[in-house]
Design a protein around this nucleic acid. Sequence first.
DNA 1: CGAGATGTTGAAACTAGTCAATGTGCGTGG
DNA 2: CCACGCACATTGACTAGTTTCAACATCTCG
Lengths: 255, 255
Amino acid sequence: MSARGIEPRRMGVPGAQPAHDPHCLPTAEACAVCEARPFSICAPLSTAELAELDRFSTTLHLPAGATFVHEGDPADHCFNITAGSAKIYKLLPDGRRQVIGFLFTGDFLGTATRGPYGISAEAMTPLSLCRFERTSFRAVLSRLPALEHALLDRTADELEAAREQMLLLGRKAARERVASFLLSLSRRAVRLGRVADPVQLPMGRTDIADYLGLTTETVSRVLTQLRTEGMIRLNGTSEVHLTRRAALESLCEGA
Amino acid sequence: MSARGIEPRRMGVPGAQPAHDPHCLPTAEACAVCEARPFSICAPLSTAELAELDRFSTTLHLPAGATFVHEGDPADHCFNITAGSAKIYKLLPDGRRQVIGFLFTGDFLGTATRGPYGISAEAMTPLSLCRFERTSFRAVLSRLPALEHALLDRTADELEAAREQMLLLGRKAARERVASFLLSLSRRAVRLGRVADPVQLPMGRTDIADYLGLTTETVSRVLTQLRTEGMIRLNGTSEVHLTRRAALESLCEGA
DNA sequence: CGAGATGTTGAAACTAGTCAATGTGCGTGG
DNA sequence: CCACGCACATTGACTAGTTTCAACATCTCG
């Protein structure tokens, strides 16, 4: 196991940003036109409640590659992704990395309520997000039961997904892992209102490998294998057509 | 990967149990003397709130081996473990099994809010639990913010643990997995007010293996290996002394 | 005390990992 | 606009760790 992918740079999100920083603007009426809202925890909030929450939020824009949450740091903020995609991951001291998940528009980050961040987060594309101070956010949470409900639902969903991933990591073979991954990306695209079939892979092979508990070589080999078998078709490295979707489905479950 | 451990028996917890069933008694004033309360989500509730919640709970007693939650069934109930231990797991159609976690006194089961159960649950020892109807529970949740808070905290903790396990399953070697497992059991024992050092293993090698994404043979081999190296001492098959705890700690992280 | 279940140990097989080379795409700068 | 160079992806040969299959040991409980 190699020590790839370790870049302890600390770009993006300085502690307190001055108002003139282009990466840190007050949200103002941004919520009114927010395209991420239908997919976010703010979806169930009324206009008044939205305003209440908005008072404590800050809009950030980060470049691709920016690490904006560092595992082990005090968990001072939580975030809502409004545009772009990010990955969250955990590291072992020797550099082995497990990608825990990928975040897209509408995803919330920072559920963990106590202690330091348990994960690191890095932008995979240029990223827009709403940032909340944890303390304020928790206070708002008490005042807005609808928000707490939404957050609980979402956290439960995340837990469910994590358990599914535990099954994948603990018991599935490489082919099954890759097939499961492609299908889950496809389903997620649908949930975000995009097409199911040409699946976009906004992440590189290394991230996929670290998400599936494999190596880039194995991911690559499996993809070509699936292509050879006619189950998928590759357009470049980051677009996959799921021909024979049913076959992929059964592959997920061990067929 | 073999199809061991598949017993689709359906004992315990029929849909609606008559009041005279010895396994299903009204809780009445049970909360007042409940030894699990300090470890449960009910801990932060006032006496009045406790009474409110109690109105919707039923006490169950199940024998070891009883499966009381079936993956895929409609999620009609949620549970609070008051005594004994249980395991939750997911299955693949061909019988491969991933144990998701072990539940002990005070643990809550049934966070997932929508759809069917995502996991199965089975008593490992004689088990006592409070059962709630999901619908009622959710309603109570709305009336008792303290309960919802506690549940959110707990779900977040579970998510954190699940992520840690993803790191283990995706990136740790067999020795590291076993060492991590022993230490996490030890820490959990401490949280439950028991001793840290002689760690009790209430589960068999098969469950351990299915939890760590290994086989029983590998678990067994690693344990003897650690014993040979003087890092642990085995008293029978279900008690482990963590001699050289520090060495185990560094082993967890890849030393 | 005996029998089935559970746990341990051994040898062989296999999946995925490692190391290394080659191929491909993309952005930059001439 | 094309060529260069770099990062990323693919492919190949070999290795290693874990699984598989099988035998044996131990424990538990009727």
